[in-house]
Design a protein around this nucleic acid. Structure first.
Lengths: 170, 170
DNA sequence: TATTGTTATACTCTATAACTATA
DNA sequence: TATAGTTATAGAGTATAACAATA
């Protein structure tokens, strides 16, 4: 198949099935987190990442993988800080950096919403899959994730635009 | 494993790999559609669904699978109509219904963005996968999609709330 | 000069509630 | 009474650009 050709039918079906299934899953997960913890999925990701590791990360480290713009992360961090779920302070290593730290309340919140979160994942995603399916899916998506991550300047707002040419064709 | 237990490690890894990989994919796809067609993924879905079928659907039919609230769909339809990509008119079958129809411009737009869209999917999603992997992934996600769809009142805004009890615990 | 992070701002998306009209 | 769709409105999320401080 030439580079400019479309996807094979099997690929198209796979693509749409993946996008739709995950959209529905995301929707359900957002609802659960909002209902039980009054946080968004992004906020959950940030808290979970902090709570899972040492407890502190710089803004840049925290942004990595959550794809946002810097200002978006600042905004979210502001919300989490006002809610008492994280604190922000200077980094000893780099005077420019801000060190973000989960509070006990932040950890408690993660602990509180995690069971329900996991339950949604189990009910929507894992119920129709065998253990073997889960391992297979995990393997495939891990490869995709690694691949996608390796491709573009993925972290927050690279200083330059990604396509300064041919913008707004309509 | 008891119902209230957490997920097995393999499940957790699978879940996070899936969510992150698809988030990155969605992000890339949104960017491509915005750059090449100045539309969102949701708008693309609506147009593609119309262009792919007979060309006309009622609002309710169109909403199905795109999960939105009715007002959200009305909003999107308004944007698409103002852009000349769809038209809205009365339905002959049901006087209450609005029949949405793709215009030629709408079809042309889908045709114009589809190659780039497909290219993003190929580059991010399919490049690290073998043909067999793609079939396997398609099979798994089709099952998940069917399962998720079968679960809750998935269409737009069911008149009643989904959990009138225990709201806002914090 | 490059990088970290914030601010100000504007825009998009989504959701709730109230409403109209048809069934 | 229930359903289809719209409107008004408000809130959350995201992004761009300009900026300050440090490397």
């Amino acid at each position: 198949m030439a580079e400019s050709d479309g996807l094979a039918p099997a690929q198209l079906e796979t693509y749409f099935a993946l996008m739709e299934a995950v959209s529905l899953l995301q929707h359900a997960v957002e609802r659960q987190l909002r209902a039980e913890g009054d946080i968004s999925y992004v906020q959950f990701q940030l808290l979970a990442r902090l709570a899972h590791g040492e407890g502190s990360l710089t803004m840049t480290e925290l942004a990595d993988g959550v794809v946002y713009s810097r200002s978006g992360l600042t905004h979210q961090a502001g919300l989490l800080e006002r809610a008492g779920l994280i604190t922000r302070g200077p980094s000893p290593d780099d005077q420019r950096a801000t060190l973000v730290t989960v509070t006990d309340a932040g950890r408690a919140l993660v602990d509180r919403v995690l069971p329900g979160h996991v339950q949604v994942a189990r009910r929507l995603l894992f119920e129709p899959l065998t253990d073997q399916d889960v391992r297979t899916l995990g393997d495939l998506m891990a490869r995709v994730r690694t691949h996608v991550r390796s491709l573009p300047p993925r972290s927050a707002t690279p200083r330059r635009r990604r396509d300064d040419d041919h913008r707004s064709r309509r």
